[in-house]
Amino acid sequence: MTHVKRFQGIPMSKSMRGLCKEEDYAFLAESEGTAEETAGAVALEDDWRDGKEERVRRRLDRERQEKEKLREIEESKKEKEQQWRSHVAELTSTQEKALQDRLRRLRRFREFQKKVLVEESGMEGLAAGLTVDQLLTRM
């Protein structure tokens, strides 16, 4: 009976109301259906917008996470490269130091050999030095 209340506000004669009763019902059915359809359409549109906003938010979140992951990978690569460089520099330094120590020991040993050969041969001077150098070169 809500239609009666709704249409009482419309200025109309009694006879006219009687004639339009069927039309009133038809109009009410259409307007209520339209209102329901409109409400349904608005709800669907709101749901669609919410879904679209949610999809956009998720996409942006995935992109942000992907960028973060790529940045972390790049940082990890840089850190590993830096560690490798320091490792190689340390190895090079150690090897260089070992070679320098070996060279020093060899030179001392050669000097010792030279000294022993000069003493054993009993020769002194420049000629003895040249002969000893020739002997050491042959060894």
Rank of each mutant, 00 (worst) to 15 (best):
Glu75Cys: 12
Ser31Cys: 08
Arg110Thr: 03
Gln100Val: 13
Leu130Val: 09
Glu124Met: 06
Asp47Tyr: 10
Glu36Met: 04
Glu74Thr: 07
Leu130Arg: 04
Glu53Tyr: 05
Thr34Cys: 11
Thr137Pro: 06
Ser31Pro: 00
Thr131Ile: 06
Leu99Gln: 12
Arg71Thr: 01
Leu28Phe: 12
Cys20Leu: 13
Arg62Tyr: 05
Glu68His: 09
Leu91Thr: 00
Arg85Met: 03
Glu124Leu: 02
Arg71Phe: 04
Lys78Glu: 03
Tyr25His: 14
Glu79Ala: 15
Glu111Thr: 09
Glu111His: 11
Glu63Gln: 04
Arg107Leu: 13
Ala127Phe: 10
Thr38Gln: 13
Leu60Phe: 02
Ala41Gln: 07
Glu81His: 08
Glu37Trp: 10
Lys97Ser: 10
Leu106Gly: 07
Leu106Pro: 02
Lys52Met: 12
Thr34Phe: 14
Lys67Leu: 12
His87Trp: 13
Phe27Ser: 14
Arg58Val: 13
Lys67Ala: 09
Glu66Ser: 10
Thr92Glu: 13
Arg85Val: 01
Val116Asn: 04
His87Leu: 14
Gly125Phe: 04
Thr94Met: 12
Cys20Ser: 05
Trp48Thr: 08
Gln65Phe: 01
Gly129Pro: 05
Leu135Ile: 11
Gln65Tyr: 00
Glu90Val: 12
Glu75Ile: 03
Gly129Cys: 10
Val88His: 11
Gly51Ser: 05
Glu68Ile: 05
Glu119His: 09
Gln65Arg: 07
Leu135Asn: 01
Lys67Met: 12
Trp84Ala: 13
Glu53Gln: 07
Leu117Gly: 02
Glu111Tyr: 02
Leu44Tyr: 13
Glu32Phe: 09
Arg62Pro: 03
Leu60Glu: 05
Lys69Gln: 07
Asp47Trp: 11
Arg107Gln: 15
Phe27Tyr: 01
Leu130Gln: 08
Leu70Glu: 12
Gly33Cys: 01
Val118Arg: 13
Gln95Ser: 11
Asp46Thr: 15
Val88Gln: 14
Glu30Ser: 03
Glu45Cys: 10
